[in-house]
Amino acid sequence: MYKIEVKNVSFVYGQSTPFETSALTDVSVGFEEGKITGLIGHTGSGKSTLVQMLNGLLRPTSGQILLDGKDIWEKPKEISKVRFRVGLVMQYPEYQLFDDTVRSDISFAPKNMKLSESEIDERVREAAAFVDIDEQILDKSPFELSGGQKRRVAIAGVLAMKPEVLVLDEPAAGLDPRGRRTILGGLCEYQRKSGTTVILVSHSMEDMALYCDNIVVMNDSKIFAEGTTSQVFSRASEIASVGLDIPSIAHIANKIKGNGIGLTGNLYTVDGVLDAVLREMKGGR
């Protein structure tokens, strides 16, 4: 079942000005409940626009966004309630930090939700723990932290809302490999524990292969492909035709298959392919 569904949505920036550009044209796509769905596409393919529609920051020029089957713009005055249910972590979220201490910054959203003091305190600690931020750091100024720590604090600021749907726009952009693993691994663990529906925007196919259940590919303001990770990655040549690339290991697996060796299973992560090759070798004997 779809947790959040986009129905025939179009969006035009700067309507009826000389700078009118269409960012989305008749897009329909669903995001499955309790799954991690990856959203890939080139810069300018409409990903960020789509993402900002999911929590009502942008209102579709036409079409609907359905959350649990209900149009989020049914009551425009209550859109802030939708924003608490659909948490959005924007690109480079560390630029949104503003408060004196990490603790009060993370509690900004829960405070806006008008939760009780004890509930806020509980949520801040929980969110900080998920992104691996120690208790001592909570009383520091966010501006003293390193880049990776700032990023994690900013993500915690959204996690503290306990959203039903968590949308992350390139949460690992500009981080070193270790920072990427900490953030993406942490999110994955969070998802498993909480059962949240997660939508992950990324450029990295390797990351997608590792962490996502489903993948949606966008190109030129439209949905280009969607399906489970293996379904999408089996369409390597189509994906290459829009200038995106599948993980290197999936290329190798496809080549092996092309030579008449039947591999089965997860063929887009190194471990998966290794397993498949080993199984094939044993079976052959």
Binding site: L57, R83, V89, P93, Y95, Q96, F108, A109, N112
Partner: peptide, 16 residues
């Protein structure tokens, strides 16, 4: 542009 981004980020956290 930056103000726009920051405003959106804070709105996403329920700022009014």
């Amino acid at each position: 542009e930056e103000t726009d981004k920051i405003m959106n980020a804070q709105k996403a956290r329920g700022a009014d």
